[in-house]
Each structure stands twice: as structure tokens, then as C-alpha cells.
């Protein structure tokens, strides 16, 4: 027994010391990441995806001082991965971060955005979902984790690819999205489609990390509505096989307050059993 103690101590100590410290001399990777955006091509009026894409849903608020840091993380992702990233800024969550007052008069919240936040149990801002991974226990990701998760997701082969075609009637402000999605992998669980409209380049006040109010902050990718509802519609109860194609069309009357030229459709194909997004896509409302 006496020697057993020393033996266990030796084994445990050896394990710790030989496996426990990664001292990094060069923090930045040598092979500088140069994004080459080959994620989609335009054929006629139709955007045709050729690679996997990742949606990053950023739950944010104009009175949340750390939220601009998350927006910065989105911009970094955008510069790294281009249109392989589908960002969506959903103003929802704790009302002391998202509510309006004299300093922050514009209400960016929406009922559908609130419903999405409630569904995913968003309890703090800024908080995000990357491809809605790891639901229901650890799906909420802080912005510092987004780039690594995105990187991992993009390294995988696409499981489905969208072809998107948008139409817009500026007189009636009617927007139409025609989609076609082809499975690149077999799916066995129920497949759902969710469709959202987002708007960018909105100038409105934002509380900044230094507690100052930036009156001319440019809000991007702001979630505006969900024509099919916050969680969308079922398109296949039993999944589908490689090569199977699902088509559809969604129509939405754009709110007069929205700038159609800065709006985009966002579409998700997801596995309803775990809410994991199989493939997202986006295209301009006003092509």
C-alpha cells in the first residue's frame, strides 16, 4: 500500500506535466487565411450555392454596451469568409437591453424575433447561435467562440445547396423569394424551412463598450420579420435522399419603413429534431 501511493503519484504527476502546457510563441497562424469566395455563382437572376454556408444569429440590443463587440466579430467573420456567412442580428432578449427610451427611440424588436429568442432561451446579450448547433443544452455561444465554430462548420462538406431567385415590385412593395434546395446528403429527420427578412445600413443610436451613446451607429443585418413564422414550415416529414430537390416560393409585403434596397432574404433548411441548420442562404430582396 505504501509503494502504491508513490506509484499513483508518479503516474498522475507525469500525466499532468507532460500534457498540460501549450506555450504559444507565435499566436497568429503562419498560413494567413485568404478568403476566396466561391460559395455561390449567379446564373441569370438566380444565385446558386456551391459550398456550405453558416448562419450566425447575433442576439443583440441597442442598449447593450457589449453588443457592438459581437457586431465586430460578425464583421471579422465577414472579412474572413465572405458570403459563406449569413449573419442575422436579432434584437431580442432582456428588455433593459432592447427596450426604447428617449435616448434609444427606435424599436428594433419584433414579435417573431422575441419568439426565436424565447425558443432558444436567450438569457443574456450579446449571445449567438452558430448554425443552431448543440441545441438544447449548449447552443448559446459567446461571440468569441463564433469564428472557431464557423471555421469548423465550413470545413465540412455541404449537406444541401440552395438556388435562390428574388423578385420585387417596388409599387406594391411585394417581395417574392423562389427557392430550390437540393440535398447533398441523406436526411432522415423532419426537414423545415424558415425564412426571414433582414435590413442593413440603419443609422440609429447604440450604447458602446465605453458606455457612450453613438448616435450614428450603423446597424447591420437587423432581423425584421419572418414570413413563415419564427420557426418556419415543414417541407418533408421523413427527410430526403441525396439529389432530392424541394422547391418553394414565399411572398411578403415589405413594411413601408424598410429600405428595400438594404433588405435581404435569409432562408434556412434545418433538421427539426435538433434545430441544427443544414444549410442557410441569403439573397437581396431588391435584386
Amino acid at each position: 500500500m505504501h509503494y502504491l501511493k508513490y506509484f499513483i503519484l508518479f503516474i498522475f504527476s507525469s500525466y499532468l506535466f507532460f500534457n498540460s502546457c501549450d506555450v504559444i510563441d507565435e499566436p497568429f497562424k503562419d498560413n494567413t487565411f485568404i478568403p476566396i469566395d466561391t460559395s455561390s455563382t449567379i446564373i441569370g437572376d438566380t444565385l446558386v450555392q456551391t459550398e456550405r454556408a453558416v448562419i450566425v444569429e447575433d442576439f443583440t440590443g441597442h442598449r447593450c454596451k457589449n453588443c457592438p463587440k459581437a457586431s465586430k466579430a460578425i464583421r471579422e467573420l465577414d472579412s474572413l469568409f465572405g458570403s459563406k456567412i449569413v449573419p442575422l442580428a436579432i434584437h431580442a432578449g432582456p428588455s433593459n437591453f432592447t427596450g426604447t427610451n428617449n435616448d434609444y427611440p427606435i424599436d428594433f424588436t419584433t414579435q417573431e424575433g422575441d419568439d426565436i429568442a424565447t425558443h432558444f432561451g436567450i438569457f443574456a446579450l450579446p449571445m449567438g447561435l452558430v448554425q443552431r448547433l448543440d441545441y438544447p443544452n449548449s447552443h448559446q455561444k459567446t461571440y468569441s467562440a463564433w469564428s472557431a465554430l464557423t471555421f469548423l462548420e465550413l470545413a465540412k462538406s455541404p449537406e444541401a445547396l440552395f438556388s435562390l431567385n428574388a423578385e420585387y415590385d417596388s409599387l406594391s412593395r411585394t417581395a417574392v423569394l423562389n427557392y430550390s434546395v437540393e440535398l447533398s446528403s441523406n436526411q432522415t429527420n423532419p426537414l423545415w424551412i424558415a425564412v426571414y427578412i433582414k435590413e442593413s445600413e440603419i443609422i440609429a443610436p447604440q450604447l458602446m463598450p465605453n458606455n457612450a451613446r453613438n448616435e450614428t451607429y450603423i446597424h447591420k443585418n437587423v432581423f425584421r420579420n419572418a414570413p413563415l413564422g419564427p420557426l418556419g414550415n415543414l417541407i418533408s416529414q421523413n427527410g430526403g435522399e441525396v439529389g432530392q430537390i424541394f422547391n418553394g416560393s414565399i411572398t411578403s409585403n415589405l413594411d413601408p419603413l424598410l429600405n428595400a434596397k438594404e433588405c435581404e432574404w435569409v432562408i434556412l433548411l434545418y433538421d427539426k429534431s435538433n434545430y441544427k441548420v443544414i444549410q442557410p442562404g441569403s439573397t437581396l430582396v431588391y435584386p
Binding site: S20, C21, D22, I24, F28, F33, L80, L152
Partner: peptide, 21 residues
């Protein structure tokens, strides 16, 4: 005392230490 944590590190830009002692 000696304590170490292991967490996978994936980042497109940074070499993250996976084992921090």
C-alpha cells in the same frame, strides 16, 4: 499546486493553446 485545463482550440487566425497550465 498544478492545474491544467484542456479545451479544443479551433480558430482561423489564432494558434490557441489547448492545454493551459
Amino acid at each position: 499546486s498544478f492545474v491544467s485545463k484542456f479545451q479544443r482550440g479551433f480558430d482561423p487566425i489564432l494558434n490557441l493553446p489547448q492545454n493551459v497550465g
